[in-house]
């Protein structure tokens, strides 16, 4: 698979079909990969794709304007299913022109949650990692463990409905159709059963650990505001402390702002240095949007995003609570 990807990328770059390809390369840490920008065929062999590729590379197509499409130049983006949804969202939200991106889908089997791996490793440092047939093996000093991938996958992947790109130009291998994955939504079901006081408490538990580093926001493909409300100081909308009152406002507003726009890639949660369960609220919001507006984010770039559209027949029960 990886050879096919590298060859395809080489061809795209050599033929001048794209100026640049955004993907992943091996990271410096045993359980990591890192975003990479490939601009010549010789460099294409750096590309990797495996279950450490947790970043959403779509981010760089808006955040790194310099690299994108300097006056209409084409950029290739290697994408998992969720990353592809971000690109479709960008097209729908007119952040990128469809013609300017070449979407290169890769078959995703889910990405790792390194916190889960570390927990299973029981504090011993993982120095080597390999994966085969749904099994993951980690090795280190006094450490040699093999487990089912599903035990260490990111929560977003366990609930994934579109592991492979829906909209793409090139797919490496064969793209699988998306399928509803209701059985993995237990966490949201549980949350919905809670009383509002209990929900608040749950949210306080989550957000009290926040250190306000904004890694979640900055790796989030849907957070592309030129200036985030937390970065405005005149007026200043929100206190800057790590106290729950301030962190809660940040996370709730971010949650509402990405409602109907979140592709549930889980990049935020994996980025969080404090291990906050950031997906819970985001996935709850995605479910709300789907139930109320029949809209799933980033599946069809031709469809108007739920929050940018109004249909007379849409359910308006939320108005009455």
């Amino acid at each position: 698979m990886i050879e096919e990807l590298r060859e395809k990328v080489k061809k795209l770059l050599a033929g001048g079909d794209v100026e640049l390809v955004i993907g992943w390369e091996k990271g410096s840490q045993p359980l990591s990969s890192t975003p990479v920008f490939i601009d010549s065929p010789e460099e294409a062999d750096r590309l990797v794709f495996d279950s450490t590729c947790g970043n959403n590379p779509a981010v760089y197509s808006t955040k790194d304007a310099r690299r994108l499409v300097k006056a209409g130049k084409k950029v290739g983006v290697v994408v998992k299913g969720c990353d592809a949804r971000s690109l479709s969202l960008y097209v729908a939200e007119k952040q990128v022109k469809r013609d300017n991106i070449v979407i290169i889908g890769v078959p995703c089997r889910g990405v790792l949650d390194s916190d889960k791996v570390e927990e299973l490793a029981g504090g011993r440092e993982v120095l080597e990692y390999s994966e085969q047939d749904g099994k993951i093996t980690v090795r280190g000093k006094d450490l040699d463990l093999t487990f089912d991938a599903k035990d260490v996958l990111s929560a977003s992947c366990l609930a994934c409905i579109y592991p492979d790109a829906k909209e793409y130009d090139i797919f490496i291998g064969e793209a699988r159709d998306g399928k509803p994955n209701k059985e993995q939504n237990a966490a949201i079901d549980e949350f919905e059963k809670l009383s509002s006081e209990e929900r608040w408490k749950r949210m306080e538990e989550i957000y009290s650990k926040c250190i306000r580093c904004y890694a979640c926001r900055n790796v989030c493909p849907s957070c592309y505001c030129n200036e985030c409300f937390v970065d405005q100081n005149d007026p200043q909308w929100i206190g800057k402390t790590p106290e729950i009152t301030d962190t809660m406002i940040f996370h709730i507003i971010r949650n509402l702002h990405v409602a109907g726009r979140c592709v549930e890639c889980g990049a935020c949660e994996r980025a969080c240095p404090m291990g906050l369960d950031l997906l819970l609220l985001n996935r709850k919001a995605a479910r709300e949007v789907e139930e109320r507006f029949g809209y799933v984010t980033g599946i069809d770039s031709g469809e108007k995003p739920a929050m940018a559209d109004f249909r007379e027949d849409e359910k308006q029960n939320f108005i009455m609570g």
Binding site: T34, P35, V36, F37, V59, Y60, K63, I211, R212, C213, Y214, A215, R217, N218, V219, A271, P273
Partner: peptide, 10 residues
Amino acid sequence: KCVNCGACAF
């Protein structure tokens, strides 16, 4: 590739 978050600094 830096996304300018403050994780490193914090």
